[in-house]
C-alpha cells in the first residue's frame, strides 16, 4: 500500500524484500492479536458468546493488520524522511495515483461487505429478538406476546424497576436472581414499570433494552453452568450502578428442584440494592441532587444471595 517511485527503473528487489518482511511481521502480529483477543472477554456462557468472540477476533486480526500497516509507514516516514534542519527543499511532488486509490477504495469496501454479510448470518442464527408489542397502562402485558416457538423454557417475565430486578416463572414462582437451566433455549418477556433499562449479561454477550409501554419477547440459550452478573446497561437514574443481580445457570434437575423448593417459600421482600444507599442519604439529611425514591422491593419467593461471588 505504499507508493514507490521506482516504476520506471526496473524491479527494485531491495524494496520488494523490505515490504515482504514488513507484511510478514504485520501478519504475524495480527494473528497473535486475534488469538490473544479471546482472553479479553468473560467466560462464554451462552450460544451467542462463541460467535461474538470469534467475530471480534476476526476484526481484531484485520484491524491489527491495518493499524500496524498504517502506523508502520508513519514510523518509517518519521524515522527516515525527516527534513534536516534549515533544509527548505520540497519532497517528491506526487499528486496521486489512480491505481492505488482504486485499490484502497475497493479492498475496504469488500472487507466491510464481507464482515456485514457474515454478521447478518450470525444475527439470523441467534435470532434472539422476538416481537415487540406496545400495551396500554392497565393491560396485562404478559398476555400480549405469545411464547417464542423455538424455546423450551419460559416465558419468564423480567420486570425491571428503579432499581431492582424481579423474575416471574411460568408456574408463578418469583425471584430476585434469575435461575436458568443449561443448554435450553429460554424465552423472556421484558417489561419495565418506570424508565428504560437494559437486560445485560456480559457472560452471555447479550443485551436488550427494556422499554416502558412495550413488552419485548427475547430468547437465548445458556451453555455453561455458573453464577454470572446481570447488569442494567441503560442509564436509569440515581442508583443505576446498583441495579444488578445474578444469573444462575444450573443443570435441568437443580433448576427443577429450585423451582419446587421456591414454590413452597412464602413471599418476602427481594433484593433491593439501592435502598441502603438511599436510607444512608436520608440519614445524612437528603443531601445531593434530586432523585426519585427507589421503588419498594419486589415480593419474591427467593430473595437470593447477594454476597455469593459471581464468575463474570
Amino acid at each position: 500500500m505504499m507508493p514507490t517511485s521506482t516504476e520506471n527503473q526496473g524491479i527494485n528487489y531491495g524494496a520488494i524484500l523490505v515490504i515482504s518482511i514488513a507484511v510478514g511481521v504485520d501478519i504475524f502480529f495480527s494473528v497473535l492479536m486475534a488469538h490473544w483477543s479471546y482472553s479479553w472477554f468473560p467466560v462464554q456462557a451462552s450460544s451467542a458468546a462463541p460467535y461474538v468472540d470469534s467475530l471480534f477476533s476476526l476484526e481484531t486480526g484485520i484491524g491489527t493488520f491495518i493499524f500496524l500497516g498504517c502506523t508502520g509507514v508513519m514510523a518509517w516516514v518519521i524515522l527516515f524522511n525527516r527534513a534536516p534542519k534549515y533544509d527548505e527543499v520540497n519532497g517528491d511532488p506526487i499528486e496521486g495515483n489512480i491505481k492505488l486509490e482504486i485499490v484502497w477504495t475497493v479492498i475496504p469496501l469488500l472487507l466491510v461487505l464481507a464482515i456485514a454479510a457474515y454478521s447478518i448470518n450470525v444475527n439470523n442464527t441467534l435470532s434472539t429478538l422476538g416481537p415487540k408489542q406496545k400495551y396500554r397502562v392497565g393491560d396485562n402485558p404478559a398476555a400480549l406476546v405469545s411464547m417464542d416457538p423455538k424455546s423450551t423454557v419460559g416465558p419468564i417475565e423480567v420486570i425491571a424497576r428503579q432499581w431492582s430486578w424481579e423474575f416471574v416463572y411460568p408456574d408463578g414462582v418469583r425471584s430476585s436472581e434469575l435461575h436458568l437451566p443449561v443448554d435450553q433455549r429460554v424465552n423472556f418477556r421484558l417489561i419495565s414499570e418506570d424508565v428504560l433499562h437494559s437486560f445485560y449479561v456480559p457472560a452471555f454477550r447479550l443485551k436488550q433494552d427494556i422499554v416502558p409501554g412495550s413488552v419485548i419477547s427475547y430468547s437465548l440459550t445458556p451453555t455453561r453452568e455458573g453464577r454470572y452478573r446481570l447488569r442494567d446497561a441503560m442509564f436509569s437514574g440515581a442508583y443505576f450502578s446498583q441495579n444488578q443481580t445474578d444469573v444462575i445457570v444450573e443443570s435441568e434437575k437443580s433448576f427443577a428442584d429450585w423451582l419446587d423448593l421456591s414454590a413452597k417459600q412464602p413471599l418476602q421482600p427481594g433484593l433491593d440494592p439501592s435502598q441502603p444507599l438511599y436510607q444512608r442519604r436520608l440519614a445524612k439529611g437528603d443531601k445531593g441532587w434530586a432523585t426519585v425514591p427507589p421503588s419498594p422491593p419486589p415480593l419474591v419467593n427467593d430473595p437470593g444471595n447477594p454476597s455469593a461471588p459471581h464468575e463474570a
Binding site: M2, V73, V77, N81, D87, G91, I94, L100
Partner: peptide, 9 residues
C-alpha cells in the same frame, strides 16, 4: 499517509 511518504517531514 501517502502524502507523508517520501516527504520532508
Amino acid at each position: 499517509i501517502a502524502t507523508l511518504w517520501r516527504g520532508k517531514i
